[in-house]
Nucleic acid binder design. Structure first.
Lengths: 151, 151
DNA sequence: GCGGTTGTTTTGACTAATTCAAAACAACTG
DNA sequence: CAGTTGTTTTGAATTAGTCAAAACAACCGC
C-alpha cells in the first residue's frame, strides 16, 4: 500500500499513523469517506464503505470513529434530533448550521473572532475547554418547500 | 383545584392553560418538578413524579414534554452523550455549560450581548432562527476528582 | 351541575442508535 | 518472519425515544 508516485504523500495513512493508530483498510476507507462527505453519521459511513469493504460491520465503524475522535483526527457533532455526525475539519473552531426540517448540516466559520465564543460570562467554577455553537435554521430547499406547503 | 388564598395565583396551572393546553395532574407535576430541578431528562422527571403519581408512565412524560415544548412552555436541550434535558427558562436566550465528565449542566447568560450569537458570518442561504451555544468543560467537583486521579 | 367533545393519558409493542464483550485476526516491531 | 499488541468481527444487549389504539378526564356550553 504505497503511494503511486512521489508526489502523493498518502496523507490519510500518515495522519492515522501520526495519531498513534495502526493503519488498516477500514480506517482508511472511513477517513477517505469522511473527507468526501463531511457530517456523515456512523450509519452513513457504513453504507458508504460496505460495497468496497464487504464484511465490515457498523460496530467496526463505531470503533473506528471512537478511536479517531479520541485521537483528535475527527470531530463529533450531535445535531438535535439526528444521530451523531463526524467530520475531519478539526482544530479550527468552526460551527454548524442545522436545517430543522431536513437535518442538513453546513459549516460556519467562527462567528466573530473567537474570544466571545469561548468566554462564558459566569462559569460558576467550571473550566471551559470549548464552545459548540449550533445555528438552527431552514436550508434553501426547505424554505421553498415550506413556502409551497403553508401559504 | 382552586388556589388556597387570593395571594396564590396558581402560576403553573395558569401557564399551562395560557398555552392552550388542558390542566392535568401529571402536567402540573412535570412543570413543578422542572421548576425545582431544571435540566432534568424525561427519565429523571418520571422518577421524580412517580411516587406522587403512581400509574404514570414514561410515555406520558414524553408526551407532556413534547406538548410543553411545542407550546413554548419548556425548552429542550440535547447535551452530547446524554439524553435530552428540559427546562422552564424560556424566552431568554441563555446557554449551557456541560461537564464532560459527569454531564452536569449549568445555565449561562448570553455571552456578549446577543447579536454575535445569532449572526453567522456566512449562512449559505439558510434562514437562521436561533443559536444554541454549549460550553464543554469540567465542573468543580470533577476538576478535583480528576486532579486526584491523574497526578 | 351535567353531558358531550376533544384533547390526554395509558398500555403495549416497537425501532433506532449505540455499547459491551469475547474471540478471530492483522499491523507493526525487532 | 514471528510475536505482541492493537483492531476488527461476531453476536447480543441496552438505552432513548416513538407509534398507535383504547381508556379516560378536562373544559365548554346548556
Amino acid at each position: 500500500m504505497q503511494a503511486a508516485a512521489g508526489m502523493e504523500p498518502d496523507l490519510p495513512a500518515r495522519a492515522i499513523r501520526a495519531a498513534g493508530l495502526k493503519v488498516t483498510a477500514p480506517r482508511l476507507a472511513v477517513l477517505e469517506m469522511l473527507r468526501g462527505a463531511p457530517h456523515s453519521s456512523a450509519e452513513d459511513i457504513f453504507a458508504g464503505i460496505r460495497s468496497a469493504l464487504p464484511g465490515t460491520s457498523t460496530q467496526a465503524v463505531y470503533g473506528i470513529l471512537s478511536a479517531f475522535a479520541a485521537a483528535g483526527l475527527v470531530r463529533r457533532f450531535d445535531p438535535p434530533g439526528s444521530p451523531t455526525r463526524f467530520e475531519c475539519r478539526v482544530g479550527d473552531n468552526h460551527h454548524h448550521i442545522v436545517c430543522v426540517r431536513c437535518r442538513a448540516v453546513r459549516d460556519v466559520d467562527c462567528v466573530v473572532g473567537q474570544a466571545p465564543c469561548l468566554q462564558p460570562s459566569d462559569d460558576s467554577g467550571f473550566v471551559v475547554f470549548a464552545a459548540e455553537v449550533t445555528f438552527n435554521g431552514l436550508c434553501k430547499t426547505c424554505q421553498e418547500q415550506a413556502a409551497h406547503t403553508e401559504v
